[in-house]
Design a protein around this nucleic acid. Structure first.
Lengths: 192, 192
DNA sequence: GTCTATACCTTGATAGAC
DNA sequence: GTCTATCAAGGTATAGAC
């Protein structure tokens, strides 16, 4: 991580929250600057263009994800536990008021998005899908899971369910997300 | 259906397409008017406020859905066939370029939506969830499906998976949606 | 039913002072 | 690093002519 002053960190934090609540075109520099008690133009000092800000947000999300899965891989926990770790992460994010997962937050605006933002979005999506596929593969081999479809296909469906669940939960509340996590585990034949 | 001239119909049709591609705040009256070769202000003649337009769009979607499920109920087809009818409808809509399901298209903007639009959105969501629950209940009783969770819970998870699948498919293509439909049917123990 | 014209707001972005 | 000031663009919406 580069050295960062407090303002920069807060810009990224609020920016991320706004992004995940309202999407790319749903928040403005003014929304962020008001939260910090500064002016619109000050944000442009850190991120001249909005695409710079959003790209940086996505890079930091991906960095954090990469760090987290590396830590899990070292800890030698079961595939079930790895999944649960991800689910807990989603629930915690939901509780923090970051209502939509970052992947879902860009889909409506995707066509008109700047190229570098699109790239980051696809990269994060690939990383998440690849991680799920890996966990499912291991869990199958170790007999923790039971299902008959190719792991990639199953992984994709899980990501989609979480995507949708996170969105419905932003309207209907946390229980919605909890229920879907139970279903996902049940469909994997997961015992806990 | 009220009598409608061609302009009005086209406004609703393009409006719906734009809404499902870009969300509530992602399209403008100008987008629609340009498609029709008329001016911005002409649309306001039919729908003074944007919320009027979007409310009408949602009402017509819900009306169509209500009509479709009534027709299915009369036709006496199996629960599996009823599900497949819905899946085919989604695939057809996807092919028409209406990329996101209407429910998903309003979620990001939901908080700031006019009250009457929120109502229509929730109403459609309830209708869809209730229909899925009903079909699952019947399918269970007739032995067409096998699963252990409450039907409401399973129905919710299916809607979420379709929601997410439709969104990923808008980026990654039709196959994504097809794959998820297979998984959903597989998890229901559906034989076809 | 469609047009022109217009009012008013928000947004992304820049220039230049401090 | 933050401010004031400003700009062009695009959005919603209205008034009134045709």
């Amino acid at each position: 991580m580069q050295e960062m002053n407090n303002t920069n960190q807060q810009i990224l934090s609020y920016g991320r929250t706004f992004l995940q609540c309202r999407g790319y075109n749903g928040f403005s520099y003014r929304d962020i600057s008001q939260k910090l008690g500064i002016k619109n133009a000050a944000i442009h000092h850190y991120y001249p263009l909005k695409e710079d800000l959003v790209t940086t947000i996505f890079e930091s999300i991906r960095q954090q994800f990469t760090k987290d899965i590396a830590k899990m891989a070292q800890s030698g926990c079961s595939a079930c536990e790895e999944l649960q770790y991800f689910f807990d992460f989603m629930l915690r994010e939901f509780d923090e008021g970051r209502n939509i997962c970052p992947i879902g937050s860009l889909i409506l605006d995707f066509e008109e998005l700047p190229e570098k933002v699109k790239e980051q979005h696809l990269l994060l999506m690939d990383n998440v899908l690849a991680w799920f596929s890996e966990v499912l593969k291991n869990g199958l081999q170790k007999g923790e899971f039971i299902f008959s479809e190719p792991v990639d296909m199953r992984a994709e469906a899980i990501v989609e369910t979480l995507l949708g669940a996170r969105q419905l939960a932003s309207i209907k509340g946390r229980k919605t997300l909890e229920r879907s996590i139970l279903i996902i585990k049940s469909d994997l034949g997961c015992k806990n």
